[in-house]
Amino acid sequence: MAEFLFAAAAIVLVLTGLGLARMLWGPSPADRMMAAQLLGTGGGAIAVLVAIAGDMTAVLDIALTLALLAAFAAVALTLGEPGSKRRGGEE
């Protein structure tokens, strides 16, 4: 069973990796950010698969952290709005 799960993890990795093409092609930053999001989800999947297959429950915490911070980058991306006039401290 472990073999299968490891293989599944490898496949998820490959699939997520293919998704990275979006990072290269874009065309917009939103598209590129999607690649990062994909990797967040895929990375979580890989982590849970590896954790169970390798019987390393500690690895679950990696998945947990990835899941917790998955939206973080997307939030940060929205800081950089086009047309945002905000500079420095003035509101």
């Binding site: 952290t65 911070l69 973080f72 980058a73 940060a76 800081l79 950089g80 086009p82 945002s84 905000r86």
Partner: peptide
């Protein structure tokens, strides 16, 4: 995961946001 995906990314993206118009 916490730093590379989270904290550093935020710092850099925020910098981009503030550099963008300039």
């Amino acid at each position: 995961a916490a730093v590379g995906g989270g904290a550093t990314g935020l710092v850099l993206l925020r910098a981009c946001a503030r550099l963008l118009p300039v």
